[in-house]
Design a protein around this nucleic acid. Structure first.
Lengths: 123, 123
DNA sequence: CAGAATCCGGTCAGATACTG
DNA sequence: CAGTATCTGACCGGATTCTG
Protein backbone atom coordinates (compact mmCIF):
# COMPACT_ATOMS: atom_id res chain seq x y z
CA UNK A 1 0.00 0.00 0.00
CA UNK A 2 2.86 2.38 0.75
CA UNK A 3 5.38 3.56 -1.74
CA UNK A 4 8.33 5.70 -0.84
CA UNK A 5 7.11 8.51 -3.05
CA UNK A 6 3.88 8.92 -1.18
CA UNK A 7 3.35 11.08 1.83
CA UNK A 8 1.73 9.66 4.95
CA UNK A 9 -1.25 11.83 4.15
CA UNK A 10 -1.66 10.25 0.73
CA UNK A 11 -1.42 6.83 2.29
CA UNK A 12 -4.10 7.64 4.81
CA UNK A 13 -6.43 8.77 2.08
CA UNK A 14 -6.02 5.36 0.55
CA UNK A 15 -7.50 3.92 3.71
CA UNK A 16 -10.99 5.22 3.10
CA UNK A 17 -12.01 2.27 0.93
CA UNK A 18 -10.53 -0.06 3.52
CA UNK A 19 -12.75 1.44 6.17
CA UNK A 20 -15.73 1.11 3.85
CA UNK A 21 -15.05 -2.54 3.36
CA UNK A 22 -14.64 -3.05 7.07
CA UNK A 23 -17.93 -1.28 7.71
CA UNK A 24 -19.81 -3.58 5.38
CA UNK A 25 -18.30 -6.66 6.96
CA UNK A 26 -18.16 -5.62 10.58
CA UNK A 27 -20.19 -6.94 13.43
CA UNK A 28 -20.68 -10.37 14.80
CA UNK A 29 -23.02 -11.74 12.16
CA UNK A 30 -22.55 -10.29 8.70
CA UNK A 31 -19.94 -12.69 7.42
CA UNK A 32 -21.83 -15.63 8.83
CA UNK A 33 -24.99 -14.52 7.06
CA UNK A 34 -23.14 -13.96 3.82
CA UNK A 35 -21.55 -17.39 4.09
CA UNK A 36 -24.83 -19.12 4.70
CA UNK A 37 -26.34 -17.32 1.75
CA UNK A 38 -23.43 -18.23 -0.47
CA UNK A 39 -23.92 -21.81 0.61
CA UNK A 40 -27.66 -21.96 -0.02
CA UNK A 41 -27.87 -19.23 -2.70
CA UNK A 42 -31.31 -18.43 -1.30
CA UNK A 43 -32.94 -18.59 2.12
CA UNK A 44 -36.01 -17.70 4.07
CA UNK A 45 -35.79 -15.78 7.31
CA UNK A 46 -36.33 -18.83 9.46
CA UNK A 47 -33.80 -20.88 7.56
CA UNK A 48 -31.24 -18.15 8.07
CA UNK A 49 -32.01 -17.95 11.74
CA UNK A 50 -31.55 -21.69 12.04
CA UNK A 51 -28.19 -21.64 10.30
CA UNK A 52 -26.69 -18.63 12.00
CA UNK A 53 -26.51 -20.06 15.47
CA UNK A 54 -27.51 -17.78 18.28
CA UNK A 55 -28.71 -14.83 16.28
CA UNK A 56 -31.93 -13.19 17.41
CA UNK A 57 -34.59 -12.16 14.90
CA UNK A 58 -33.92 -8.56 15.76
CA UNK A 59 -30.25 -8.76 14.88
CA UNK A 60 -30.92 -10.85 11.81
CA UNK A 61 -33.42 -8.34 10.55
CA UNK A 62 -31.08 -5.46 11.20
CA UNK A 63 -28.08 -7.08 9.56
CA UNK A 64 -30.09 -8.11 6.52
CA UNK A 65 -31.28 -4.56 6.04
CA UNK A 66 -27.72 -3.29 6.09
CA UNK A 67 -26.59 -6.00 3.70
CA UNK A 68 -29.43 -5.08 1.38
CA UNK A 69 -28.44 -1.41 1.44
CA UNK A 70 -24.94 -2.45 0.56
CA UNK A 71 -26.22 -4.52 -2.37
CA UNK A 72 -24.96 -7.74 -0.89
CA UNK A 73 -28.35 -9.44 -0.76
CA UNK A 74 -31.74 -9.02 -2.34
CA UNK A 75 -35.08 -9.43 -0.63
CA UNK A 76 -38.10 -10.74 -2.49
CA UNK A 77 -41.57 -10.88 -1.02
CA UNK A 78 -44.23 -13.18 -2.40
CA UNK A 79 -47.75 -12.21 -1.44
CA UNK A 80 -48.80 -15.72 -0.60
CA UNK A 81 -50.58 -16.82 2.54
CA UNK A 82 -48.65 -16.46 4.75
CA UNK A 83 -46.19 -14.20 2.99
CA UNK A 84 -42.90 -15.78 2.08
CA UNK A 85 -39.69 -13.83 1.87
CA UNK A 86 -36.58 -14.97 0.11
CA UNK A 87 -33.14 -13.60 0.67
CA UNK A 88 -30.62 -14.10 -2.08
CA UNK A 89 -26.95 -13.43 -2.27
CA UNK A 90 -26.11 -11.17 -5.19
CA UNK A 91 -23.28 -11.72 -7.62
CA UNK A 92 -21.82 -8.69 -5.99
CA UNK A 93 -22.19 -10.28 -2.59
CA UNK A 94 -20.24 -13.25 -3.86
CA UNK A 95 -17.45 -10.91 -4.84
CA UNK A 96 -16.38 -10.54 -1.23
CA UNK A 97 -15.15 -14.10 -1.29
CA UNK A 98 -11.51 -13.07 -1.89
CA UNK A 99 -11.74 -10.74 1.07
CA UNK A 100 -13.13 -13.46 3.30
CA UNK A 101 -10.41 -15.76 2.08
CA UNK A 102 -7.70 -13.22 2.83
CA UNK A 103 -9.14 -12.77 6.30
CA UNK A 104 -9.33 -16.52 6.69
CA UNK A 105 -5.75 -17.28 5.73
CA UNK A 106 -4.35 -14.53 7.85
CA UNK A 107 -6.66 -15.34 10.75
CA UNK A 108 -5.58 -18.94 10.67
CA UNK A 109 -1.93 -17.94 10.79
CA UNK A 110 -2.74 -15.51 13.52
CA UNK A 111 -4.26 -18.22 15.69
CA UNK A 112 -1.05 -20.21 15.40
CA UNK A 113 1.11 -17.21 16.26
CA UNK A 114 -0.92 -16.37 19.30
CA UNK A 115 -0.92 -19.95 20.49
CA UNK A 116 2.83 -20.20 20.00
CA UNK A 117 3.47 -17.04 21.94
CA UNK A 118 1.27 -18.25 24.76
CA UNK A 119 3.24 -21.48 25.00
CA UNK A 120 6.43 -19.46 25.18
CA UNK A 121 5.09 -17.27 27.97
CA UNK A 122 4.21 -20.28 30.07
CA UNK A 123 7.76 -21.56 29.56
CA UNK B 1 -14.71 -21.25 1.14
CA UNK B 2 -17.64 -23.58 0.56
CA UNK B 3 -17.48 -26.94 -1.13
CA UNK B 4 -20.49 -29.04 -1.90
CA UNK B 5 -19.28 -31.84 0.31
CA UNK B 6 -19.23 -29.70 3.39
CA UNK B 7 -22.12 -29.14 5.71
CA UNK B 8 -23.14 -25.63 6.70
CA UNK B 9 -21.87 -26.43 10.16
CA UNK B 10 -18.42 -27.24 8.83
CA UNK B 11 -18.43 -24.02 6.87
CA UNK B 12 -19.32 -22.02 9.91
CA UNK B 13 -16.47 -23.55 11.87
CA UNK B 14 -14.18 -22.27 9.16
CA UNK B 15 -15.33 -18.79 10.02
CA UNK B 16 -13.62 -18.70 13.39
CA UNK B 17 -10.27 -17.54 11.96
CA UNK B 18 -12.13 -14.93 9.94
CA UNK B 19 -13.66 -13.55 13.10
CA UNK B 20 -10.24 -13.57 14.75
CA UNK B 21 -8.81 -11.54 11.92
CA UNK B 22 -11.69 -9.13 12.08
CA UNK B 23 -11.22 -8.74 15.82
CA UNK B 24 -7.57 -7.81 15.43
CA UNK B 25 -8.39 -5.24 12.77
CA UNK B 26 -11.63 -3.87 14.11
CA UNK B 27 -12.28 -0.45 15.51
CA UNK B 28 -11.82 2.96 14.11
CA UNK B 29 -8.06 3.25 14.39
CA UNK B 30 -6.17 -0.04 14.17
CA UNK B 31 -5.59 -0.13 10.45
CA UNK B 32 -4.58 3.49 10.41
CA UNK B 33 -2.05 2.88 13.17
CA UNK B 34 -0.70 -0.19 11.42
CA UNK B 35 -0.39 1.73 8.18
CA UNK B 36 1.49 4.59 9.79
CA UNK B 37 3.82 2.12 11.46
CA UNK B 38 4.41 0.28 8.21
CA UNK B 39 5.23 3.61 6.64
CA UNK B 40 7.67 4.76 9.31
CA UNK B 41 8.76 1.34 10.58
CA UNK B 42 9.09 2.98 14.00
CA UNK B 43 7.36 5.78 15.84
CA UNK B 44 7.07 7.56 19.13
CA UNK B 45 3.72 8.11 20.80
CA UNK B 46 3.52 11.73 19.79
CA UNK B 47 4.53 11.01 16.22
CA UNK B 48 1.77 8.44 15.99
CA UNK B 49 -0.76 10.81 17.45
CA UNK B 50 0.24 13.43 14.88
CA UNK B 51 -0.13 11.02 11.98
CA UNK B 52 -3.38 9.39 13.01
CA UNK B 53 -5.55 12.44 12.69
CA UNK B 54 -8.08 12.94 15.41
CA UNK B 55 -7.12 10.14 17.73
CA UNK B 56 -7.00 10.90 21.44
CA UNK B 57 -4.12 9.67 23.61
CA UNK B 58 -6.51 7.39 25.43
CA UNK B 59 -7.61 5.61 22.29
CA UNK B 60 -4.10 5.48 20.90
CA UNK B 61 -2.84 3.93 24.09
CA UNK B 62 -5.65 1.42 24.16
CA UNK B 63 -5.28 0.40 20.54
CA UNK B 64 -1.52 0.06 20.85
CA UNK B 65 -1.94 -2.26 23.82
CA UNK B 66 -4.26 -4.47 21.85
CA UNK B 67 -1.95 -4.47 18.87
CA UNK B 68 0.92 -5.42 21.15
CA UNK B 69 -1.05 -8.31 22.61
CA UNK B 70 -1.73 -9.49 19.09
CA UNK B 71 1.96 -9.31 18.26
CA UNK B 72 1.45 -6.67 15.63
CA UNK B 73 3.72 -4.10 17.25
CA UNK B 74 6.48 -4.04 19.81
CA UNK B 75 7.00 -1.41 22.46
CA UNK B 76 10.48 -0.45 23.62
CA UNK B 77 11.16 1.87 26.51
CA UNK B 78 14.49 3.66 26.88
CA UNK B 79 15.16 4.87 30.40
CA UNK B 80 16.39 8.25 29.29
CA UNK B 81 15.26 11.59 30.65
CA UNK B 82 12.47 11.95 29.83
CA UNK B 83 11.69 8.36 28.92
CA UNK B 84 11.34 7.67 25.24
CA UNK B 85 9.09 4.97 23.92
CA UNK B 86 9.33 3.49 20.46
CA UNK B 87 6.64 1.51 18.74
CA UNK B 88 7.69 -0.77 15.94
CA UNK B 89 5.73 -2.76 13.46
CA UNK B 90 6.68 -6.43 13.60
CA UNK B 91 7.35 -8.58 10.57
CA UNK B 92 4.19 -10.30 11.59
CA UNK B 93 2.37 -7.00 11.60
CA UNK B 94 3.53 -6.42 8.06
CA UNK B 95 1.96 -9.73 7.11
CA UNK B 96 -1.52 -8.21 7.23
CA UNK B 97 -0.69 -6.25 4.11
CA UNK B 98 -2.45 -8.73 1.80
CA UNK B 99 -5.53 -8.48 3.98
CA UNK B 100 -5.50 -4.71 3.85
CA UNK B 101 -5.01 -4.90 0.12
CA UNK B 102 -7.94 -7.25 -0.31
CA UNK B 103 -10.07 -4.91 1.77
CA UNK B 104 -8.81 -1.99 -0.25
CA UNK B 105 -9.57 -3.42 -3.68
CA UNK B 106 -12.98 -4.62 -2.69
CA UNK B 107 -13.77 -1.43 -0.79
CA UNK B 108 -12.85 0.65 -3.82
CA UNK B 109 -15.16 -1.40 -6.03
CA UNK B 110 -17.81 -1.17 -3.38
CA UNK B 111 -17.69 2.63 -3.38
CA UNK B 112 -18.31 2.61 -7.11
CA UNK B 113 -21.21 0.18 -6.82
CA UNK B 114 -22.90 2.18 -4.12
CA UNK B 115 -22.41 5.42 -6.01
CA UNK B 116 -23.84 3.86 -9.19
CA UNK B 117 -26.88 2.54 -7.39
CA UNK B 118 -27.50 5.91 -5.82
CA UNK B 119 -27.41 7.56 -9.24
CA UNK B 120 -29.90 5.01 -10.45
CA UNK B 121 -32.26 5.65 -7.54
CA UNK B 122 -32.32 9.34 -8.24
CA UNK B 123 -33.22 8.51 -11.84
C1' DC C 1 7.12 13.31 26.15
C1' DA C 2 4.11 9.34 27.20
C1' DG C 3 0.59 8.28 28.90
C1' DA C 4 -3.38 7.45 33.13
C1' DA C 5 -7.83 8.93 35.35
C1' DT C 6 -12.35 10.38 35.10
C1' DC C 7 -16.68 11.52 33.12
C1' DC C 8 -20.12 10.93 29.78
C1' DG C 9 -23.18 10.21 25.75
C1' DG C 10 -24.16 6.97 22.01
C1' DT C 11 -24.48 2.66 19.99
C1' DC C 12 -24.38 -2.49 20.14
C1' DA C 13 -26.42 -6.47 21.10
C1' DG C 14 -29.08 -9.83 23.99
C1' DA C 15 -33.64 -11.34 26.25
C1' DT C 16 -38.28 -11.40 26.05
C1' DA C 17 -42.69 -10.64 24.36
C1' DC C 18 -45.82 -9.53 20.76
C1' DT C 19 -48.09 -8.96 15.71
C1' DG C 20 -50.18 -9.98 11.03
C1' DC D 1 -43.58 -17.55 8.66
C1' DA D 2 -41.40 -13.05 9.03
C1' DG D 3 -40.63 -10.06 11.47
C1' DT D 4 -41.46 -5.60 15.33
C1' DA D 5 -41.37 -3.50 20.16
C1' DT D 6 -39.40 -2.68 24.46
C1' DC D 7 -36.09 -2.91 28.00
C1' DT D 8 -31.45 -3.37 29.57
C1' DG D 9 -26.63 -3.84 30.41
C1' DA D 10 -22.12 -3.71 28.07
C1' DC D 11 -19.01 -1.49 25.47
C1' DC D 12 -17.12 2.18 22.29
C1' DG D 13 -15.10 6.26 21.79
C1' DG D 14 -14.61 11.38 22.69
C1' DA D 15 -13.33 15.46 25.88
C1' DT D 16 -10.86 16.98 29.46
C1' DT D 17 -7.71 16.94 33.11
C1' DC D 18 -3.74 15.26 35.50
C1' DT D 19 1.01 12.91 36.41
C1' DG D 20 6.11 11.44 36.33
Amino acid sequence: MQKENKTPKECLEKLLPVQDALDVLKGKWKIQIISVLIYYEECGFKQLQDNVKGITPKMLSKELKELEINLMVTRQVSETRPVTVRYQITEYGKSVTPVIKALYYWGEQHRESIKASMRKERG
